[in-house]
Amino acid sequence: MEKLYLIARIADTRVALRSRAINSVVTVGIPVEVPGAPPHVAGLFALRSRVFTLIDPHVVIGLSPVPVAAGQRVIVVDVADHGYALLADAIEDVCFIEAPETRVAGKLLPGWARVADGMIEHQGASLLVVDPSHFITLPALKAA
């Protein structure tokens, strides 16, 4: 369980997410908009009679928001007893990675530096290991 990772593309970047941080991966329809909410809130959707808040990782990283397509896959996580879902560009794989997590080498964009926990080697590529709970708050709100 410890070594199980979800490999996904979020905010135009391939990343690895620790599987124990993730509740499930589902597809969504058109979410319900939340007027007045912070820009990274892409809307609300219901799943098994629970309401989840959809987060657009693009905005968290500092990119411009991407519209939600029907049938898009999202990564469902629970943070502080609230249900959230991260919009994923693509879900690639769930796999065991034996390699250890290493410290982030090199300089990342500030948006990524905030959400990345480390790096991991997988099939000849270095992936950022990100903590989904870091996507819930925007940098500006984080300071508050």
Partner: peptide, 17 residues
């Protein structure tokens, strides 16, 4: 209850299905 950042807008008291 809605997520904290939605409650923080002060516009909403919660969500319902």
């Amino acid at each position: 209850p809605a997520a904290p950042m939605i409650m923080a807008t002060g516009l909403y008291a919660g969500t319902t299905l």
